[in-house]
Write a protein that binds this DNA or RNA. Structure first.
Lengths: 334, 334
DNA sequence: CTGAAAGCGCTAACAT
DNA sequence: ATGTTAGCGCTTTCAG
């Protein structure tokens, strides 16, 4: 049999309420009775039933991390880093994290609202949401606390933490330029995500600023996926005018590209310079090591969690929009 | 105002019970009433309150993954892979995963029991538990479903999934031997974990079988931590007789060792052969790429989750002890 | 096929 | 300083 507050109360000859007061340290209880009750709690090894407590308190101290329902998600170092930041912060605030995989292709407007209504969460952090996700607007109409990560969306009711993606792409192109490259191609990321779009925009903008040539055949779409990038970057080698450098919207794509370049017996950085984006763990280890735009992924997670907790505890109100700085990490690939 | 089952009932002119029956698809309800109720549910956007449901059903469809309370845990590719396996399987069975960090140094006997009593979980998977963890025995005395991962403990009340660590270590030494190495050292893992102990045992056993020399100065302790291994492996270079190969109980230690070897201007594999253990993502990318004993980490997670779900659904009973095969992956470091 | 009553374990609000 | 009542939203049990 499970020990409940009632068992404690009976044994201590008090009411359940007094026990509850002792457990929560709220309200007045005579030191003596408190002492007695505490002793019995220890003896019986009582632990509060969180479910019962949540049913009345309406709070669970659990936050949900919404992730796309994809196999082997944690093998993506990008996700692992962000999640690491979130858990680190949750630890400090004594919140638990529950992982909620949602179907990427689910186009329903209530996909997130359903989760909210289940009442299991105090708040949620959404990872890798797409631009036209129909679930976000309805969610923002509720009062439920949530934060988007690496997704930029200016709205009075939406909170997000993102990196300066446009700036990052500009930095990358600038760097390639300073290294003497002039024919700069791009493996773009997913245009369904704001960061994918922003990085492409930054690339194009900087080409213009520097008066560099823009060519459609120099832009391919890797969708932030290594296998896609590996396949698509093939097109760059079939261009009428061969690029001498490539800005990749993420490191996995850059790694795929380097593999392809090697297969073609070309050299990095001599024949083709490569810059990535993110600074995942591998970036430092691939050969040649990868010059990349570092975005502070762990910080992104920490920041999102902090904002979420502020929202939950109502110490801050929406909208909270935060952009973190990026920096160029020069390695061997340029 | 939140929509509850009572609202639906009132609007449909039925009792709460009938609504409940429709929602759960249990018991008889006239097709017509069912239809009507379903329609109202849709209209009002009703979603069941999981908390309330759990309070009575005693089941939450949530499993806990117990992890040591360590910063940046997910950056450890070993953890990330196992977790990936667990989530993949949980997805299929429609269970949610909650992360429960526990203090590594907590020596209390009720550290896990407390969590169980909170009634938030249907079962749990424990990662990186130590041999003398005082919390495990008491937990096993309850009927609560749980599985240890990469921890071998034969007991009628304990379930685990582990790799064949002893065999793996033997494979590694055999391989080094076949490559002509004769002075084989070892960076051992944490002896607080069964897999650390087993790998050391396999190493020693195989040295004996092959009639190779054993020297205390050829064994250092890396505790499964790169920074520790990096520091400790220094001792190997101060040995009276220098080893010509090193079996490392984990890949991070092997990577640390390779860094150290390079700093000393020695060559891998010519001067020193190196074998790792785990086959983390990096193993393939470091230079030289790492020969290692691959343990199926994702499978380990999948397997643990499968067993746990069987335990929860009572289709199997403890004890369930499972050992997965390991294999040698030859790369450039030997 | 449907409903009424009771209760899961806890806390808020109001007594005393 | 402590107790009583009521109720969170749901399901189980038993009765019709």
């Amino acid at each position: 049999m499970r020990i409940t507050i009632a068992d404690i109360a009976k044994k201590a000859n008090v009411s359940k309420m007094t026990v509850s007061r002792v457990i929560n340290g709220r309200g007045y209880v005579a030191p003596k009775t408190a002492e007695k009750i505490k002793k019995i709690i220890d003896e019986l090894g009582y632990q509060p039933n969180l479910i019962a407590r949540s049913l009345v308190s309406k709070s669970t101290k659990i936050i949900g991390v919404i992730i796309p329902k994809v196999e082997h998600l944690f093998l993506d170092n990008y996700i692992a880093q962000i999640l690491s930041g979130i858990t680190d912060e949750a630890l400090k605030k004594d919140y638990r994290i529950i992982l909620i995989p949602v179907e990427y292709s689910d186009k329903s407007e209530d996909k997130y609202i359903k989760i909210v209504k289940n009442r299991l969460l105090d708040g949620m952090i959404l990872l890798k949401t797409i631009i036209d996700d129909p679930g976000i607007a309805p969610l923002s109409e509720t009062q439920f606390p949530f934060v988007l990560v690496n997704h930029k969306r200016y709205s009075k009711k939406i909170n997000f933490v993102d990196s300066k993606n446009i700036r990052g792409a500009e930095l990358a192109v600038e760097h390639l330029y300073s290294k003497g490259y002039r024919k700069i191609a791009c493996i773009a990321g997913s245009l369904h995500e704001t960061n994918g779009k922003d990085r492409l925009r930054g690339y194009l903008k900087k080409l213009e600023d520097l008066g560099l040539e823009k060519r459609d055949e120099w832009i391919v779409f890797g969708e932030f996926r290594k296998s896609v990038a590996y396949h698509e970057c093939e097109k760059l080698f079939k261009a009428k005018i061969l690029p001498d450098a490539v800005f990749c919207a993420d490191d996995y794509s850059a790694i795929a590209l380097i593999e392809k370049i090697k297969e073609r017996k070309l050299r990095v950085p001599e024949d083709i310079g490569v810059v990535g984006f993110d600074d995942i763990e591998l970036a430092e280890y691939v050969k040649p090591s990868l010059t990349t735009i570092r975005q502070p992924l762990i910080e992104l997670g920490i920041s999102a969690a902090k904002i979420l907790f502020d929202l939950i505890e109502e110490t801050r109100k929406p909208p909270i929009h935060k952009l973190l700085n990026v920096e160029l990490i020069q390695r061997e690939s340029t």
